[in-house]
């Protein structure tokens, strides 16, 4: 099952990269995908069943525009702070807590935090805390910072990855 999932993913990536239906090219792609599938199946995913649930893909599609909105906002925020003559920054590292359990979900959350306004994840701990570097610290409190930083992505990512 794991091998099949990795085979499909790598073969789709091959198809998009080469973008041709030329017969030998397809053959090489299938061969390489099989080799990759046998070698790296244990590294790629722990719960292959999740790849066949349509609901997760739909939630992911719903996640993309929200993510793009915050990403654009983050860039305008950086633009404002960088171009301002007095550099209105007040940096610091705060601690937030996430309730997401699986590794993929936490990685996705940390990456989302990095690309959203004024925050960047510095370290993750095993018991669910993320240390976040803020370019302007609004709150040093754990709960308050969690509400500000984590809560806008957490519910959607839980639907997608858990």
């Amino acid at each position: 099952m794991k091998k099949l999932v990795l085979f499909l993913v790598s073969f789709i990536v091959w198809l998009v990269l080469t973008w041709t239906l030329y017969y030998p090219s397809l053959l090489i792609g299938i061969l390489i995908s099989i080799i990759i599938g046998f070698w790296f199946a244990d590294l790629f995913t722990q719960r292959p069943r999740h790849f066949f649930q349509i609901k997760r893909f739909l939630y992911f599609l719903y996640y993309i525009p929200i993510f793009l909105y915050y990403c654009t906002l983050a860039n305008l925020d950086v633009a404002y702070r960088v171009l301002h003559p007095y550099l209105p920054i007040e940096p610091g590292i705060v601690k937030v807590k996430t309730t997401l359990k699986s590794e993929v979900a936490r990685v996705a959350l940390a990456n989302s935090i990095t690309l959203t306004p004024g925050t960047m994840s510095v370290a993750l701990t095993d018991d669910g805390y993320i240390y976040v570097h803020c370019i302007k610290v609004y709150s040093k409190d754990l709960e308050e910072a969690t509400r500000r930083i984590v809560s806008r992505f957490e519910p959607i990512l839980r639907e997608v990855f858990e």
Binding site: A74, V78, R81, V82, L87, I93, T114, L115, H133, I135
Partner: peptide
């Protein structure tokens, strides 16, 4: 790039460069 030059330390510089360069 401007953020990389103007901001004071590693972490703030990384913030500016990562966000802007990725988008």
């Amino acid at each position: 790039a401007i953020g990389l030059v103007r901001l004071p330390d590693v972490y703030t510089r990384l913030q500016a460069s990562t966000k802007c360069v990725t988008l």
